[in-house]
Design a protein around this nucleic acid. Sequence first.
DNA 1: TGCGATCAAATCGCGCACGATTATATTGGG
DNA 2: CCCAATATAATCGTGCGCGATTTGATCGCA
Lengths: 153, 153
Amino acid sequence: MTAAKDQRPGRLDDFLCFMVYSTGLAFNRVYKPLLDRLGLTYSQFLVIMSLAQQDDQTVGSIGEGLFLESNTLTPLIKRLEAAGFVTRHRDPDDERVVRVCLTQAGRRLAEEAACLPQKILEATGMSPDEVEAGRRSLAAVRERLRAGASERG
Amino acid sequence: MTAAKDQRPGRLDDFLCFMVYSTGLAFNRVYKPLLDRLGLTYSQFLVIMSLAQQDDQTVGSIGEGLFLESNTLTPLIKRLEAAGFVTRHRDPDDERVVRVCLTQAGRRLAEEAACLPQKILEATGMSPDEVEAGRRSLAAVRERLRAGASERG
DNA sequence: TGCGATCAAATCGCGCACGATTATATTGGG
DNA sequence: CCCAATATAATCGTGCGCGATTTGATCGCA
């Protein structure tokens, strides 16, 4: 049994927030060598996947899906443009808006990259049920965290 | 029902990796205003918690617990030192090693900060069982990801 | 019509993460 | 004992995240 007088806080692994944080690091480390071969960072990969699901999006709508804002996305998308994977154009109907589209090279890249999440989960040896259970748990956590934020903000 | 001919990849929310990533962002956003009042970033908070659990650690042992290396930790810990929360000293028995200790101010800070994870989870309204289920799922995911990495690396 | 309010994106500064390299100390084999 | 191998931190460059601010376009209303 645990010593009754032990006043020290629990190990970091006992915190859900740290588990999310450190699992994120672990995912990044698995993705990195695979994405390096495609010339993408993980965040860039997400933008490409978002555009593959729905092309010709604005910076704002990409950000809604990824929970990021223009301060993060603008330079990231410019790097994707410099690499030849996307194009950026002001919307003629509303010059405030920038529309982002996949190039042909971007679509080829998206096809190559689309299988990565599946491949990586298979390589971990987890059952689809295990994966789905974790995903659903986290979706609930994220929803709760965001709900609290919108109450206060 | 879903259209049979829809070949597009699933939404980002269908990926476990993205769920971990975006839940990490959501956690950070909840923690940030609270940690700002203490003058800490989330990573600095983790180092303080690690030292509260076990004081007088080396940079390396802190890194083992947090899954980080000296390239990330050295500048971070120097900022904690500049803020007066920790001290850094070369170990006289092995001058390669740097030992990190909480100051009195650091211990006071740790006491204030220790309740944050609990407080935040309570504020989300999730049941302890829900939280623990998510934590365990992720622990398994992280373990699998790290096991795969050590096989290859 | 004019003009302030609003909105979208971009810009800026800071602090992580992390690969690659470097500096310094310790260890071990001949 | 010496020197190569190893170990520990530190340093450097790049790309996020993000708060705060700025730039420029659109909207609304008097």
